[in-house]
Simulated scan of single mutants.
Amino acid sequence: MGRHSLATKRRKPPIGVAALIAPAAVFFAVGGDVPSPDETSRDVEPVVTPVENQASPEATTPCCVELVAAPPTAPPFIVDEPDATPPPGEVFAASRLRIVDRALPAGIAPERGLQVKTILTSRAISEAFPEISNIGGVRPDSLRWHPNGLALDVMIPNPTSAEGIALGNEIVWYVLRNAKRFGMQDAIWRGVYYTPDGAQGYGHGHYDHVHITTTGGGYPDGDEIYLR
Rank of each mutant, 00 (worst) to 15 (best):
D83W: 12
A84T: 07
T85Q: 12
T85F: 05
F92V: 00
A93I: 02
A94V: 11
I99D: 01
V100Y: 06
D101F: 09
A103Y: 02
A109M: 06
P110T: 10
P110L: 08
R112K: 12
K117D: 10
T118C: 08
I119M: 00
T121M: 14
R123S: 05
I125V: 15
S126G: 03
A128Y: 06
E131F: 06
S133R: 15
N134A: 07
I135C: 07
G136D: 01
V138P: 03
P140Y: 03
P140D: 10
D153E: 09
I156V: 14
P157Y: 11
S161Q: 00
S161F: 01
L167Y: 09
E170R: 15
V172P: 01
R177M: 09
R177I: 03
N178R: 15
N178I: 09
M184E: 02
M184N: 02
Q185E: 13
D186S: 15
A187E: 10
A187R: 14
V192T: 15
V192L: 10
V192D: 03
T195V: 12
P196D: 04
D197L: 15
G198T: 08
G203K: 01
G205Q: 12
H206K: 01
V210H: 02
T213Y: 09
T214L: 07
G218L: 07
P220F: 11
D221G: 14
